[in-house]
Simulated scan of single mutants.
Amino acid sequence: MLEHIKAYLAYRGEKYIKPEKSENLAQYMTGLRVLAQSARKEFQTLNQLLAQQVTPFVPERASQWMNQAQICRPHFWCYYRLPSDSVEDVALATRLYGTEGDFGISVEVSFVERKKSNETLIKQHRILELPIKAPLYYFVQENGVSRRIAGTEGNRQLLKEQVASSTVRKVLVKYDVPVTEEMTPEAAVHQLIKGFELLIPYYEQTKK
């Protein structure tokens, strides 16, 4: 299951150089590019299967495997929106996480940083108005550092205070689907659908 993604994760953070410019590393870089493209295709295929089950949400293109600095991304993502949503709105998204030895795909309520408006963070923070419990959890950005926080009522109240005081900038709500060797694409999609179902109330809360 997702063998190319698993293999690719070993190279996350590595600098890619075009083979024609990498001299004695040309063969290595060619292999890296082929693997990365195959991993991204696996992620795209999984999201295409998921998209068929979560209509009317429409998936955007999956992220590229390297950033503008040509560094291999540590994860891929794909945002899902309703036709009525704008690009600055809070959306649902799938995101690859972990390392080659322990990885999975999460579903989250979040937004695209480079497309946000002055209102986007205000809308995102509305997720804290709803109660939460496991298996959902928070992913919090504070002073540029992101960390996971358990989905408990105590943490919800604390985060509301920290957001109000601007101690915490951003709070996502997430659901993880660990990927195992024996997991089929259909089984993974089934779990991702469950994540969508659990997170839709939070997504809807950002629209109020």
Rank of each mutant, 00 (worst) to 15 (best):
S22N: 05
S22E: 03
E23V: 14
E23Q: 10
N24F: 15
N24T: 11
N24G: 13
A26W: 08
Y28N: 09
M29T: 04
T30D: 14
T30E: 11
T30C: 11
L32M: 04
L32Q: 03
R33Q: 08
V34L: 09
V34T: 10
V34G: 06
L35T: 06
A36K: 09
S38T: 07
A39R: 01
A39L: 02
R40K: 11
R40P: 01
R40Y: 02
K41I: 09
K41Y: 14
E42H: 06
F43M: 04
Q44A: 10
A51I: 10
Q53D: 07
Q53P: 07
Q53H: 13
T55Q: 12
V58A: 04
P59I: 06
E60L: 15
E60Q: 15
E60V: 13
R61Q: 10
A62K: 03
Q64E: 12
W65Q: 03
M66G: 04
M66P: 04
Q70I: 13
I71N: 00
I71W: 05
I71F: 06
R73L: 11
R73C: 07
R73Y: 07
P74C: 06
P74G: 05
P74F: 07
F76S: 00
F76Q: 00
W77G: 00
W77F: 06
C78Y: 01
C78M: 06
Y79I: 07
R81F: 08
S84C: 10
S84V: 15
S84R: 14
D85A: 07
D85Q: 08
S86M: 15
V87G: 02
E88K: 11
E88Q: 12
D89L: 12
V90W: 01
A91C: 15
A91G: 08
L92E: 00
L92S: 02
L96S: 00
Y97I: 01
G98D: 00
T99V: 10
T99I: 12
G104R: 03
I105A: 02
S106Q: 10
S106I: 12
V107M: 01
E108R: 14
E108K: 08
E108T: 12
V109E: 04
V109P: 02
S110Y: 06
V112R: 05
V112G: 02
V112D: 01
R114P: 13
K115I: 11
K115C: 09
K116V: 05
S117M: 07
S117T: 10
N118R: 15
N118Q: 13
N118P: 15
E119C: 09
E119H: 14
L121H: 05
L121R: 08
L121W: 13
L121K: 12
I122W: 15
Q124I: 04
Q124R: 05
Q124L: 06
H125D: 06
R126P: 00
R126N: 04
L128S: 01
P131S: 05
K133F: 13
A134Y: 12
P135G: 03
P135W: 02
L136T: 02
L136D: 02
Y137W: 10
Y137P: 05
Y137E: 01
Y137T: 08
F139M: 09
F139Y: 13
V140Q: 01
Q141G: 12
Q141Y: 15
E142H: 08
E142A: 08
G144V: 09
G144Y: 08
V145N: 05
V145T: 10
V145H: 06
S146H: 14
S146C: 13
